[in-house]
Design a protein around this nucleic acid. Structure first.
Lengths: 346, 346
DNA sequence: AACAGAATTGTAAACGATTACATCTCTTAG
DNA sequence: CTAAGAGATGTAATCGTTTACAATTCTGTT
């Protein structure tokens, strides 16, 4: 009742294992008649090659590891989907690793890599300064996606977070806003840091003085509730911001909630800008103005970079995909002409 | 520069491979001094056992396959997280398989199973009548989660979809609604079918005549846009429903959108009930009334059932976890007393 | 007819781990 | 003092592939 092996197939077909193997892999010359015999034997026995024997012999697993901080944030879904599509088209399976931003967990997965369970990895949970990864990248094909380790020469694909943040703030300024708040997050992702820099840089360029009270930070996991809290703190000030730039859509949702709780209308009393353009950013009212990241494409691109590296090409390249400002209902000019009301077709 | 093997460790420690293996696996007696020598050698060389050699010899992979229709629907995220947590605690890694509800893709993954890439699987993309799976379940440990194949004696964990749907409809009726619409989906998931039956059963019990025009169906993927369309059709009727029961939260979001487009207020003019209670169901306004599924627990439970099966226990058990009616802002009594307005603290 | 080379097939050695069995060294009981 | 048994270690077979190399048959050329 055990799964049939190659030698059973060989016996069934009345030839040697080597020939069966040649038929399976279509390398080496095999006569048409023999090929037929082998194929029929395979069919009869329902033979499937044992992957461990193959891996052991070939020294490769046809598996790639995809390491993601969590999978409850909808931001990652299309990235994973993109990676999955191109990898599975190339015959690879993906092994999903959810780190929960936990150091021990990350280490565990790195070990999976080291004992050759996977041929390469796409990493999305990378701190700005990640020694483990630099080390690992010298031994195995690695591609970083969205986040990356600053110092290292490991391939990565991401958007230009600095410019994107600058653009968001400039757009708000162009609408007339000068009291522009910032909601960041307490994590060590480079994207977070760059968006913060972008925010400040834009203010400087626009000669808007930096108001320390206008910067606040949500939890490291971008969670809704911490977004509500951070926005709440910003909005409690005597001279509250008229616009809020949030480093993620979920945080922007939190800001919306905080505004509602205080009777502030969005966008009439407060403009809110998110980041990412996750799928549901346009499913509720007011639809969120945000910076769109080409998530699916980022995942797909990361996957093809990795495929190339696994075929022996050198890594280390940095690729930036274009972001896009998506203007929807959560932003409005300031001050808004209140003479006639601007309702969101409610 | 290649990864060190067990025999290199043996040479380094000046003993045989058998002893090294014994130390690694902590089985068989090894003297304390020898153990020390081995551990030091392992340390010096940075040895990690080659997983393929081990799998080949042991006949198991310590991997389980998690098959999911897609990963962009936030419904699956906590299930995956739950499965991941219990599986990785037991030393298993998960291989994520995204089928996109595609037959060929499913088949591909089943093959992964057959060539022993995984020891077992958790399946979430299962049609009511799935021959492939029944067949596969006779050969390998399998657990179905959320969806399941009706005929087969394959383990599954889910909620009681029939009763949940009945409850939703009864609750709406208890609020005074009699014109209750249904938005289903054109797929072959058993949950969809059971919820539909539950809807009809509740109407019958309440002696509300079934109005064919009050049933409509969104696409098979529960997508937002098809939800908007289906709800649109329902609401265009001369005597439109005053409440809508949707078989998923995303569809309910679509219904909200369709209502907005027609100037209908929710819940004043229309009550909407979703299903699942995905994370963001309470992040926007109006917060969605819905049936909550204990997703994380379902994933975790499926994982432990699978673990037991992989240890040799028989499968075939059906487990139902309790759902929960979550009343929020998208439902209201009917007819609503309009004398004083019921505003959602806008 | 003889031979070179191509085409086809087979034999056996890897790949790196686990483990049944054999061997050897000590204790300890009789 | 000897036999038995426990404890520690080693030898070699095994898991199921792939593939270098050898062996055989076939083809066409001289």
């Amino acid at each position: 009742m055990r799964a049939p092996t190659i030698s059973q197939v060989a016996k069934e077909a009345g030839i040697s294992v080597a020939t069966v193997s040649r038929v399976m892999n279509q390398k080496g010359a095999v006569s048409p008649e023999t090929t037929q015999k082998v194929l029929q034997a395979i069919e009869r026995l329902g033979y499937q090659p044992n992957i461990w024997g193959r891996n052991l012999r070939r020294g490769e697993s046809q598996v790639v590891l995809v390491m993601v901080p969590n999978v409850t944030n909808p931001y990652y879904a299309p990235i994973i989907a993109g990676a999955e599509d191109t990898l599975s088209a190339a015959g690879y399976s993906i092994m999903l690793c959810i780190t929960n931003m936990d150091r021990a967990r990350r280490r565990h997965y790195v070990d999976l890599m080291r004992n050759r369970r996977a041929d390469g990895a796409i990493l999305m949970d990378i701190s700005v300064d990640d020694r483990d990864m630099v080390q690992l990248s010298e031994e195995y094909p690695l591609v970083q996606c969205c986040e990356y380790c600053e110092s290292a020469a490991i391939s990565h694909v991401s958007i230009d977070n600095f410019s994107a943040a600058r653009e968001a703030v400039s757009r708000l300024a162009a609408l007339g806003h000068t009291r522009i708040g910032y909601i960041g997050a307490k994590n060590s992702f480079i994207s977070t840091a760059l968006r913060h820099k972008g925010y400040r840089s834009a203010l400087e360029e626009l000669s808007i003085p930096l108001h320390p009270g206008y910067e606040d930070f949500a939890g490291r996991d971008y969670s809704f509730s911490t977004g509500v809290e951070a926005a709440g703190r910003l909005l409690e000030q005597k001279e509250r911001p008229t616009a809020l730039f949030c480093v993620s859509d979920v945080l922007a949702l939190g800001a919306l909630q905080a505004a509602r709780e205080r009777g502030l209308r969005v966008p009439e009393d407060l403009s809110v800008v998110g980041f990412d353009d996750v799928e549901y950013a346009s499913m509720f009212q007011p639809r969120l103005t945000t910076i769109r990241q080409p998530c699916y494409r980022m995942g797909a691109l990361a996957a093809s970079l990795l495929l190339r590296q696994m075929q022996g090409e050198a890594g280390g390249q940095a690729m930036f995909l274009p972001h896009e400002w998506v203007s929807r209902d959560s932003t409005a000019p300031w001050p808004l002409n209140h003479t006639f009301s601007v309702s969101n077709d409610l």
